[in-house]
Structures are given as C-alpha cells and as structure tokens.
C-alpha cells in the first residue's frame, strides 16, 4: 500500500520544549487513522505542522510525493490537506455559507478588477458554489442546508461542527484532519456526528482521514488503525484492540502507577 501522507522524523521544538519528536507517520488513501494520546502529547501540534501553521524544526513530509514539509498553509491546502479545529473556529457573525465558502476561497478568482468587472462569471460561480455547499450541508442535516444564509452563531454545537467539516470538505481534499470533533458535545451529539462521518466515508472512499479524539468509542467505530502519541513520540501503532491492551499506552494514559 503506498502512502498518501508520509512523514518521517518530523520534529517541532518550541525553545527547549520538544513538542514533536522524530515522528514517522503514514496514511494510505481511503484510510482512517485514530490519533490518540494524553493532553499535550503533540496531536494538535502535529496538525499545525502538517497544515503549515507552525514551521517544523526538522524531518520530512510529503503528500502523494509532493513535498509539503515547511510549506505555507496556502500551498499545503492546494496540495489537498484540509482540517477542522479543536476549538470551533467559525465566523459566528457571518452566514453559514460564508463559513463553508472559506474552504474553497483560495481556488477562486480573487482579483479586485475581475471582482468588479466580471460580475456575470462571479454570479455563476457563486450560484454553483452555493449549490455545492447546500448539497454538502444537506448531507449532514437538511435543516443546515436550509440555514445557509443564517448566521453561524445561531447554530447548535453539532451543526457548527458540521459546518466546519463542510468547510474542510468543500475543496475536495485528499486528506482530512479532524481535531477532536466531539469536544464540547453530548454523547448523543457525538454519536450523530460519527454516523454522519461514517456515511460520508462511504461516499468518498478515497479520502484519507486522521482523527484526533479522546472518546475511545469514536476511535473504535471510525478508525482503521490507531496511532498513540506521548511527549511528541509515537508509542504505538496498530489496531484498536491491540492498542487498549498495550502496556505502554496504558501507562501513558493512567500514569506510571508507581
């Protein structure tokens, strides 16, 4: 199986703190990886480095043989990586559509002159994107599709998460990074969101997903493989059942016990 995303020796230092320590990580096309680890183990840092928000200290990373190591968020996004955030990062005063559209904005004509003088093309483009956003939103929740021009701040927590996922999906990414989608949601909402994801998974079989999550139930249901981080290092890689039996993983989560 050839890897879609391949990282080797990925390291990120903040001064003296080593947040990512020589991480090797690979995801194949269509694979879902559950990324777990205690708080501060480097999961979000990994996402931030992968998406170019932080510049890595050393190592290598490529997406389908395209080098994305230390590249700008723009070019990494173009290469096909999209993400959601742990803390909901929506523009709450803007409409749902504005938020979803952010996902495809970099591919749009953004010149001032073309914006002012090519209104026909712009309008057609807008309509097409609205239709696409509507379709995506409806897939998760028909009511969300109808609320496309409502402020995102009016939505429930789970719908906000859905908007974030729509925003990540609208650009047809090849790798989707989900940063704790269940944060701040009730178990029931979490379950519904998982159903959404599984359903979506079937429609987009080639999409690779890395899911950071604390809810083991979610990880068990959704992921093909699990990776465990601790202190920025990979301490486990394998199937879910093997993971929960692993001594080192248990120690990392429960403390050394001595």
């Amino acid at each position: 199986m050839t890897a879609l995303l391949a990282c080797s020796g990925l390291t990120k230092r903040f001064g003296g703190l080593v947040a990512l320590d020589g991480l090797d990580f690979a995801v194949a096309q269509g694979e879902t990886i559950g990324l777990v680890g205690p708080n501060g183990s480097g999961k979000t840092t990994f996402f931030n480095v992968l998406t170019g928000l932080y510049s890595p200290t050393s190592g290598a990373a490529s997406l389908d043989a395209v080098d994305i190591f230390g590249k700008s968020p723009q070019s990494i996004g173009r290469a096909g990586v999209a993400r959601t955030f742990q803390r909901c990062r929506l523009m709450l005063d803007q409409t749902v559509f504005d938020n979803i559209a952010l996902g495809v904005l970099r591919a749009k004509p953004l010149g001032l002159l073309s914006t002012l003088f090519r209104r026909g093309r712009l309008r057609a483009d807008l309509d097409a994107t609205i239709a696409r956003a509507h379709q995506l939103a409806c897939r998760f929740n028909p009511q969300l599709g109808a609320a496309l021009f409502r402020p995102a701040g009016d939505l429930t927590m789970i719908d906000r998460r859905r908007v974030e996922i729509c925003r990540a999906l609208i650009a047809n990414p090849r790798l989707l990074l989900l940063d704790e989608p269940s944060a701040g949601m009730t178990p029931d909402e979490t379950r519904r969101l998982m159903d959404d994801l599984l359903a979506f998974r079937e429609e987009a079989p080639h999409l690779a997903v890395v899911l950071v999550e604390h809810e083991m139930d979610v990880i068990r249901r959704v992921s093909d493989r699990c990776v465990v981080l601790n202190f920025g290092r990979k301490i486990f890689e394998g199937l879910f059942d093997a993971m929960i039996e692993d001594r080192e993983v248990q120690t990392a989560y429960l403390g050394s016990g001595q």
Binding site: G77, R89, L105
Partner: peptide, 17 residues
C-alpha cells in the same frame, strides 16, 4: 468573504490558504 475571514480569524483563514 476573504476579508471577513481574515478579520474574524486570521489563523483559520490562513489554514484555508
């Protein structure tokens, strides 16, 4: 939309290119 995104949340905006 781009300007609103950059104003509201620079980090999210740059994550989306």
């Amino acid at each position: 939309i781009a300007m609103d995104a950059v104003r509201t949340d620079e980090i999210a905006a740059s994550a989306f290119g």
